[in-house]
Amino acid sequence: MNDKDLILVVDDEPDTVRLAKRLLEMAGLKVSTAYDGEEALKKIYDESPALVLLDIKLPKIDGYEVCRKIKSDPKYKDTIIVMFTAKVFEKDKKKGAEVGANEYITKPFSGDELVSVIKKLLKEEKP
């Protein structure tokens, strides 16, 4: 069972994590954070966030692998994954879709865009 309001922000860049956390909290969401793929998986298993904002290029385990593991686990497969990356090539988007990512945001993006995408996805998910 997911925590319906909890967002996990995963990025190895502390400033990005801090900003995303601040923006999402200002939008009334609960936020947890992780700085590498291994920590992200642990937090997903421990805290069951509703949505994971996931950078692709991560230390230890990359974002694709984190996404693949979550989406192939029956217990966590409904977790919404938003890939969060500087890469804009089609092949990266394709790879994201293959591992089951729900949405893709290309960096840089505005804080408003981030909040609106996440709120929209959470709303769609809620019964």
């Binding site: 990005t16 505005s110 804080g111």
Partner: peptide, 8 residues
């Protein structure tokens, strides 16, 4: 450095 999340 260009920020990844842009804020006004």
């Amino acid at each position: 450095n260009f920020p990844e999340i842009l804020i006004r």
